[in-house]
Simulated assay, not measured.
Amino acid sequence: MPIIELQLVDGEIGERALRFYPGETLWHSEWKKAFPAHYREKTFLNKIEGYYHRADVFTPCSTAIEFQNSPITLEELRSREAFYPNLVWVVNGAKFKGFKILKHLPDVDSLQLDAFEFCHKANLTMVRKSDLLLGIEQPKVMTFHHPELRNIPLTAHYYSFRWSNPHRVWYEAKCPIIIDLGGYFLYQLKQRKQANGDYAYLHMIPRKDFIGRYVK
């Protein structure tokens, strides 16, 4: 990946460069208020590509945080992720259609689960990875009451979810996706690599802890 050279642009030059910058929603502005004023609305010039972009929040650790209230195209997602070397998306999940948090999950990275793959169903079930690799068309589906799984503990912070009408662009993101459903907790969208297709799940994060990563 080529090194990206960003130049911070202040004052009138930045305003002229982005004079068509669109307005923002209350959700958007309330999120920005959670960060110090000197973190907000930083305009950068990509010196190699020769174009500008304004970060909603840019932290002292050089992380850009973008608050996304509406659907985004794959082209725009890739453009934004290519622009900022270190980017975090915060997405307004309250607008998602058919989105529901379902069940607690075990630690998806646990060595105890290395031999198993999650099923892509609302119920919390798994299949043996060996069955998939052998090409068995109907592998045995096991709940966590099965002897091979029942001693694996569930966590308090990983969750399965259902998204009936997903905006699939977010599954293509390379940078962290933080979903805001309102309330005291946020949910990072993660994916577990599997032989039967990547398994998407949520990692619950207290809102104050997320903000505290960047505001000291």
Rank of each mutant, 00 (worst) to 15 (best):
M126S: 03
W89F: 04
C61L: 11
Q68I: 02
W31E: 07
T73A: 01
S29G: 03
Q112H: 08
K42A: 09
I136L: 11
L87K: 04
A34G: 03
T59K: 10
L87N: 05
D131Q: 13
I101F: 05
F58P: 00
T143S: 15
S110G: 10
E24C: 08
P60S: 15
Y52W: 02
K129E: 12
D56I: 03
E117S: 15
L77R: 10
K97Y: 01
V141N: 02
F67G: 12
K100S: 15
E49N: 14
F116I: 03
P139H: 13
K95R: 15
T25M: 07
P60Q: 13
A34F: 03
A122D: 15
N69V: 08
P22V: 01
P22I: 00
L18K: 15
E148I: 11
P71V: 04
E24L: 03
F58I: 01
F99T: 03
E148D: 15
L134S: 11
G23C: 05
N123H: 06
H146Q: 04
T143D: 14
E76N: 14
P60G: 14
R54D: 14
E76I: 07
T63F: 04
Q138S: 12
L133A: 13
F58K: 01
V90F: 08
V141A: 02
L132Q: 08
F67R: 09
L77D: 10
E66G: 10
T59P: 11
V57R: 01
A115V: 00
Q138G: 00
A82P: 01
H145S: 14
H38A: 06
C61M: 11
P71C: 05
D109C: 01
K103D: 15
S29E: 10
N92K: 11
P85G: 14
L134I: 02
H104G: 02
A115M: 09
P147L: 10
L26D: 02
R40C: 14
P36F: 01
N46Y: 05
P147C: 09
T25L: 11
A82F: 10
E30F: 13
Y21M: 05
A17H: 11
C61K: 13
R80F: 01
Y39M: 09
Q68A: 05
K95H: 12
K47N: 09
Y51A: 03
F35V: 05
F67E: 11
S29C: 01
L111K: 14
E24I: 03
R128M: 08
A82H: 13
G135W: 14
M126E: 04
H104Q: 06
F44E: 06
L133F: 08
Y52N: 07
D56G: 10
V90L: 13
F116L: 07
S110Q: 06
A82W: 08
S70Y: 09
I101P: 06
K33A: 06
F116K: 06
D131I: 00
R16P: 00
E137F: 05
N123V: 04
T25R: 08
T125V: 02
H104R: 12
H38I: 03
A122L: 12
Q68E: 12
L113E: 05
K97H: 06
N46G: 05
G135L: 12
